[in-house]
Simulated assay, not measured.
Amino acid sequence: MQLERAARQSRWNGTVPSAFDLRILGLVGVTAALAASLNVPYGGISFAVVAFVLLAAGGVAVHVLGERKLRRITDGIVERWVDAGVAVEDVTRSSDGMRTAWTIHTTEGEDVTVGGVALIPVARLSVEWNGVGDSMDAGEAEDDLDHLAESLHEEIFEIGTAPRRI
């Protein structure tokens, strides 16, 4: 599939910032503490501490991998939209650390929020614009990124106009 460069220029610098979710990290910490505390009667405090460290490190790694997957999907969507002629001003974090989400600011006045659940085994992608939202499995979204970017482009930017192929 060949993408065409449109006449409109994008001011996007090509990077999607990191967006970690403190709620997920808190959940990881609480779950690791609970699971580690169950080990106290059987292995003692030292065993529980080791279990907590291992479980917390694994949970943080799972969240980091999920965040990276969602960031790659967001980056891929924006790149394909820019190639299709959408003038993207910037991509920013949508919140102060309480969500894994980014807002794509365009010159056409459409702000699109892309984010989701950033835990790699159950990662979900969500896309919201003008009060309309959609979500899907992040693995499926990444596998079919061309189709996802094209269908979102048509829904968001081409309502009432002749469709353009990305």
Rank of each mutant, 00 (worst) to 15 (best):
V91D: 08
E128L: 03
V117E: 13
I120R: 10
A56H: 15
P163T: 02
D83V: 12
A32P: 15
A51P: 12
G115C: 07
I77Y: 03
L22H: 00
H63K: 13
G115L: 02
D21L: 03
I166R: 13
V16C: 01
A87E: 10
G66S: 07
S94T: 11
A141R: 06
T161M: 11
K69M: 07
V64R: 14
T113Y: 01
G139A: 08
S94P: 13
G59M: 14
A118E: 09
T113G: 00
Q2K: 01
A6Q: 09
M1K: 07
T107Q: 05
E155L: 09
A123I: 05
E150T: 01
I45G: 06
E155Q: 11
E108N: 01
R99H: 03
F52V: 08
E150V: 02
V50S: 09
H147P: 01
G59F: 15
A56T: 13
D111H: 04
T106K: 00
M1I: 14
R99I: 03
W102K: 01
L148A: 02
R5E: 05
N130Q: 08
E150I: 00
A19S: 13
P121Y: 04
S37I: 08
I77M: 09
S18E: 10
V132I: 07
G44F: 10
A19G: 09
R68Q: 13
V62C: 15
R99K: 10
V88D: 01
E155K: 12
S37L: 14
A118M: 12
H153K: 09
R71E: 14
E158G: 08
N130W: 06
A118L: 11
E140V: 06
F20N: 02
G116W: 11
L70M: 04
V16M: 08
D111F: 10
A56S: 13
D144I: 02
G97Q: 12
I77L: 11
A33W: 00
S46V: 15
V112H: 02
R72T: 04
V82C: 00
I24W: 09
E140L: 05
L3M: 12
N13P: 03
A118C: 08
T92C: 13
G66M: 03
S94E: 13
I73Q: 03
R80V: 07
D137F: 05
S46Y: 07
E4V: 10
G43L: 15
R93C: 12
E140F: 06
E154S: 02
R68K: 14
A36Y: 00
G26T: 14
L145Y: 08
A48M: 11
R80N: 10
E79C: 01
E108L: 03
L38F: 15
D75W: 10
V88M: 11
R165L: 10
T100M: 00
D134N: 12
I166Y: 07
L65Q: 15
V64W: 09
G44A: 06
D75N: 06
I156C: 11
L148S: 00
R93I: 11
G29N: 09
V127E: 01
F20C: 01
L34P: 12
A19H: 05
E67C: 15
A48V: 13
A51Y: 14
T100K: 08
R72W: 10
A141Y: 05
H147I: 01
R80M: 11
R72N: 04
V30H: 14
R23M: 07
L119D: 08
E67D: 15
D143W: 02
I159V: 04
L145G: 02
G66Y: 06
S126A: 09
D146T: 05
V91S: 12
E154D: 00
D134A: 14
I120E: 04
